[in-house]
């Protein structure tokens, strides 16, 4: 895993993604200044291979911003650069075929089988049917759906979670360097959503796509984002940075309110027991034990409930490494930002 300039571990540098840049992007609507969905002078950069989450209240222009990348909406001013090239200078259908697109409603074609749905873009690109089929089977396997069971089914025979997996597979089909995901996990129940998020992050660690991800849910933004763009009403960028920085130093009253009073606790969910400086211990008996991947937020909750002065941090091999205390967890928030927590 590499660490980018922000001190944030991402997959930057791998070949999977393209860099994305918004430069003074503005979208005005006839209904006037501050119209819902309008975007005002938006500028930020997403390094190749990272996930950037656009988050904000409804009407803040986050979906508009996303759709200006694949030109479903054209900006009134400014430019969007994909690998340094203005998206508006490229033929629109060719551009879109190089950008994966996942939406909340999934949008699977009801009259096509799952296999043919996944192969839509490869089909448009003129791949041989043999190559399409091989790719489809590979992708269905990748998103956790057995190709033999699912390939010949129709979308109306699948559950919401299964359909959303197919939606992700379809967006990945032609191996696009950029993915646009518009509230992709919002329509499924919380348990399925969490599983889809975890699986997607695991997938992303291999694929290292550049991803622009829209959500209204700050917790999802913190979990999914290497970078977060907090947007506010009027389509203005309120703050841009890694999740830990936004939680630790909200740049305005609006951002502080939006990320919530519990932003300290949220920061703990970005850290694991492995990041913690542990204290030496004597001979602990009957204390809770934490694997290195345990999030500090969960460790804290367990300690508070267990009413003990500490727990045992285990190393990768399951051997005790030292003592985890409430104080140590609290003081970790003053440390440098941690390496990114993956799923």
């Amino acid at each position: 895993m590499t660490v980018d300039a922000s001190g944030h571990a991402g997959a930057a540098g791998k070949a999977g993604g393209a860099s994305l840049e918004f430069r003074g992007v503005t979208k005005r609507y006839d209904s006037g200044v501050g119209a819902p969905g309008a975007v005002n002078d938006l500028s930020f950069q997403v390094p190749a291979g990272t996930i950037c989450v656009l988050v904000g209240p409804s009407g803040c222009g986050k979906t508009t911003s996303l759709k200006m990348v694949n030109r479903l909406i054209e900006p009134s001013a400014g430019e969007i650069l994909l690998d340094g090239v203005n998206v508006q200078s490229q033929p629109v259908t060719a551009l879109r075929r190089r950008i994966g697109y996942v939406i909340q409603q999934v949008g699977l074609f009801p009259h096509l089988t799952i296999g043919r749905n996944v192969a839509v873009v490869p089909g448009l690109e003129g791949w041989s049917s043999q190559r399409q089929r091989a790719r489809t089977q590979e992708l269905l396997g990748l998103v956790g759906l057995d190709p033999r069971r699912y390939e010949n089914r129709y979308p109306n025979q699948l559950s919401g979670g299964e359909r959303q997996r197919v939606g992700v597979a379809r967006a990945l089909a032609a191996d696009p360097p950029l993915m646009l995901m518009d509230e992709p996990f919002a329509a499924v129940d919380p348990i399925v959503r969490e599983r889809l998020q975890d699986e997607f992050l695991r997938l992303q660690r291999e694929l290292a796509k550049t991803i622009l991800f829209v959500t209204h849910d700050i917790d999802e933004a913190i979990k999914m984002g290497d970078l977060i763009a907090v947007m506010q009403e009027g389509g203005r960028l309120a703050q841009f940075g890694p999740p830990d920085e936004i939680l630790a130093h909200p740049s305005s009253e609006f951002v502080a309110r939006f990320v919530g009073e519990d932003r300290g606790l949220k920061r703990l969910s970005l850290r694991t027991v492995a990041d913690l400086r542990v204290e030496k211990m004597g001979r602990p008996v009957g204390l809770p034990r934490f694997t290195p991947g345990t999030k500090l937020r969960d460790a804290l909750a367990i300690l508070l409930v267990a009413d003990t002065r500490g727990g045992i941090a285990l190393d990768e091999g399951g051997r005790p490494r030292g003592l985890v205390t409430v104080d140590a967890i609290a003081s970790s928030l003053t440390d440098d930002p941690p390496a990114r927590v993956g799923a």
Binding site: A94, R97, I99, I103, V106, G107, F109, H111, V120, L124
Partner: peptide, 28 residues
């Protein structure tokens, strides 16, 4: 469904392909 049409457009289907390969089969 207009979401479906927008998904198709976002994936790089031309208007002609949307009509013939998506809308007409569904409207059949």
């Amino acid at each position: 469904d207009r979401d479906l049409v927008e998904a198709a457009r976002g994936m790089g289907m031309s208007e002609r392909q949307i009509l013939f390969d998506l809308e007409m089969p569904i409207a059949l």
